[in-house]
Nucleic acid binder design. Structure first.
Lengths: 135, 135
DNA sequence: AGAAACTTGACTATTTTAGTCGGGTATATA
DNA sequence: TATATACCCGACTAAAATAGTCAAGTTTCT
């Protein structure tokens, strides 16, 4: 089990941004350098963050991104959802015949994965971006 | 984020076994049919479960596997460890130069992933195989 | 003896991941 | 108004992981 780098980088980049108090836009180029993440990969990530209203973009010279809301209001769960890293951990897919083993009834471990999802989501729901930079 | 099928199947197969009260060995062939899992894939899985002392094998005709201990004493965390599904969720690898972004210091989100690991592991530590079959 | 069932290593197709490439468009500033 | 800076975006790809299969055993019950 592993989170993917996109989610990880997204959190790192946003935490980087949140560390700056002034509201000047921050360019991906700067984040790229500070966090050692490829600029073009960051662009992919920020596109999704923007679509999900987590950041706003300012184009042109001296442009960049700013957080769309205060760091204390950005839940980590939002970030994962934005990147389609839906923290749905496991199969039991309703659409697939393989899900729940092709049975009409729930598989023996179905509820377990549901509980696990709740457990993990609760963690991310309660974590705010601001929590990361307080220490 | 997704658990792999090996871990999922392992839990399903063990839960299947735990559902039988008598202590006769259960053949992988039977589990394979009941849970719709390829026999040969189950063999791979049970090899690991055996090495980690979660099941015992009885060879020969009427052989099969039995749980090495009572279902109420088998923690799900054991099962994941047995399958090398170490619930270490994220990078920040001490050995890799990429980990923590090649910095000597911890990356900005390092503690977050540590916390998440603890959170998930706690879930599996507290879940016993028996809990799955009670309902 | 023969069948049932475990044992084991090697192999492979598919999918996912983690990016790169290359061509845009918008805007501030000189 | 030229140009550099920075966002925008779709398509592509190499490498790794996943989810198995295949083949050839060994052991033990009946």
């Amino acid at each position: 089990m592993r989170l993917n780098t996109k989610s990880r980088y997204a959190v790192m980049a946003l935490a980087d941004m949140a560390g700056f108090k002034d509201s000047r836009p921050i360019s991906l180029r700067d984040i790229s350098i500070r966090q050692s993440i490829s600029l073009q990969y960051l662009e992919q990530i920020f596109l999704k963050l923007k679509k999900n209203n987590i950041v706003k973009s300012i184009r042109g010279t001296n442009g960049g991104y700013v957080l769309a809301k205060n760091a204390c209001h950005i839940k980590l769960s939002e970030i994962f959802i934005a990147l389609n890293e839906n923290v749905k951990t496991i199969g039991c897919d309703k659409h697939s015949k393989k899900g729940c083993n092709g049975r009409s009834t729930k598989c023996i471990t179905h509820n377990l994965w549901d509980e696990l999802d709740l457990h993990i989501n609760a963690f991310f729901e309660n974590k705010k971006l601001e929590d990361l930079i307080k220490n």
